[in-house]
Design a protein around this nucleic acid. Structure first.
Lengths: 158, 158
DNA sequence: CCAATACTTAGGGCGATGCTAACCTTTTTG
DNA sequence: CAAAAAGGTTAGCATCGCCCTAAGTATTGG
């Protein structure tokens, strides 16, 4: 690859990346408003939300031991917190088939939906997308597909 | 515009919109993980976060009266809550120049950044964008620009 | 000047979170 | 197989944030 072309390409890339991030930032207010609406309608404490988010992303079910360890609190505290999550209908406890001392804690469908509402990138709502010109829509699809692939390539680290 | 072309276009549109939303959804786990990281590093209660989000989006500074009204709590409660926000360095109080009874409450730069970190649509991070092929990057830019315009057209309702 | 307004402070109730200690059940180990 | 270890729950207690009412202070406006 000729050097000149590469350098020129990198300049162009920098410009576009910057542009996309600026655009992304300008959508922020809409995103913030939606996030606020979701938070306002929720009745969970921050700690409960944190634990619930872990439950949602833990397919096999988290254990009380692992949760208390990763949050740096006693088993007793975590037990009480889980009681409250179960009481609100966003989590369930079941006995681990391989070790009857262990309880596996899962998010319920309700719990999953509560958390997902917070996480979805909201600018790309159906009604907004439906209003786009076809060529813009196709371009967006191509871009999304590429970002999606890139994320799986990169192992999703932060 | 010929009817046949329109109908065909609408089918295509439906397909692409659905595809984009699916892709968007599949990025959800990465989004959730990032959101969780941000929440974990924060030390605000849900109520404090809600109020802080309002402060961040209120350019002129909110008043205690308006905040207590919109949250349905007494002035006294809001006063205490604001004390805690100020104590954490995420908000400031100043006297309204036009009415010395009124305090204008603003988010500090720290408070703004705390909230913004929660709201930014996280899949479009610089490192991910920098790894895309130029044609995908250009397509994404076009799509973003279109969505951004569409959002301002539509008044950002949810 | 006096009522209304904006806010703060004081005192008290309630719920969530945290702890330790004691206990039960199940698994592992010597 | 008995004893130790491990996972979890319960009880009792402390702390903190949030919420209230009541009683202030300061400022505004009729």
């Amino acid at each position: 690859m000729p050097r000149e072309v590469t350098e020129q390409g990198e300049h162009e890339r920098e410009r576009i990346v910057h542009e996309i991030q600026t655009l992304n930032g300008s959508m922020e207010e809409a995103v913030l408003t939606a996030l606020l609406q979701n938070l306002l309608s929720m009745d969970l404490t921050i700690q409960q939300l944190k634990v619930l988010m872990i439950l949602v992303t833990t397919e096999e079910g988290a254990t009380g031991r692992s949760l208390s360890a990763s949050f740096g609190v006693s088993m007793a505290s975590m037990s009480g917190l889980l009681d409250r999550l179960v009481g609100q209908g966003v989590a369930t406890r079941s006995t681990d088939p391989h070790d009857h001392r262990v309880r596996r804690v899962h998010a319920t469908p309700l719990g999953t939906s509560v958390v997902r509402r917070l996480a979805v990138a909201r600018p790309f709502r159906r009604d907004i997308l439906m209003g786009l010109r076809m060529e813009d829509l196709r371009a967006l699809e191509q871009g999304f597909r590429a970002v999606s692939e890139q994320i799986s390539l990169m192992g999703e680290r932060d």
